[in-house]
């Protein structure tokens, strides 16, 4: 496994799979025995968010911090916890940020605190990318989104997670086919590919020199049985 830092900020185009990746990573890190806190910092999405996994996290000893009004009818972007305070606590902190630059604006509020962790090498800001997502089909299209996220958050990305997927229709071949674009993005933005994900219902692709992380598909539609 990639040596995850104390703080991992998860960003990307909305719909690229940030929430599923954050959830899968939280489960992995919990296995180390270290305390793990997940911050649902999505202020733009009304449903399908990390706060959906409250019970699954509680069962595994993972602490969830989410806006008090997540999944309620209060349609107001507000946060009642302090990211700076959470960052100072021991253990891993995963921050699931809302999609696009709109979602990343809120992160900018904490840029001065979080950037100090980045300077000491205790923070990664990862871009979750999916080349099967409309409007991020290529490295060039994806880079536009990632640059706008960096600008809005006033933080710099440190790595890429290739989470290319087509929901339940994801195949191993599809993931392999996405690698040339991902490598082009990595080269052009000078960011390392931290890992390539594959949903656990397909065989893991073998990609030389890259870590493949098999992930449970936690984010699901109401008629698909929950896996967590």
């Amino acid at each position: 496994m990639y040596p995850y830092k104390k703080i991992t900020v998860v960003t990307g185009h909305y719909g690229s799979g940030k929430t599923n990746y954050t959830t899968a990573l939280a489960l992995e890190l919990a296995k180390t025995g270290q305390p793990v806190t997940v911050a649902d910092f999505d202020l733009v999405n009304p449903y399908f968010r990390t706060a959906d996994f409250k019970d699954a996290f509680a069962q595994r000893g993972i602490t969830l911090r989410a806006p008090d009004y997540a999944n309620t009818n209060v349609d107001i972007p507000s946060v009642q916890f302090d990211l700076g305070g959470l960052a100072a606590e021991p253990g891993y902190l995963l921050i699931d940020v809302g999609g696009d630059d709109d979602g990343a604006v809120a992160l900018g509020r904490y840029a001065h605190v979080l950037n100090s962790y980045a300077e000491t090498g205790e923070l990664d800001m990862l871009a979750v990318v999916s080349f099967r997502r409309y409007l991020t089909r290529t490295a060039a299209e994806t880079e536009q989104y990632l640059r706008s996220i960096e600008k809005a958050s006033r933080m710099r990305l440190t790595g890429i997670v290739n989470n290319t997927n087509l929901g339940p229709e994801t195949t191993t071949e599809m993931i392999l086919e996405s690698m040339p674009e991902c490598l082009a993005l990595s080269k052009h933005m000078q960011l390392p590919i931290i890992c390539v994900t594959a949903p656990d219902f397909v065989p893991a692709p073998s990609i030389p020199e890259h870590t493949v992380m098999q992930v449970p598909v936690a984010v699901h539609l109401p008629w698909i049985p929950a896996v967590l």
Binding site: Y14, G15, R132, R133, Y134, R137, N165, G167, E169
Partner: peptide, 14 residues
């Protein structure tokens, strides 16, 4: 080729 889209944005694109 198929892509992943949200219902609202797919409607707009269509």
């Amino acid at each position: 080729e198929k892509v992943l889209m949200k219902g609202n944005e797919a409607l707009a694109e269509a």
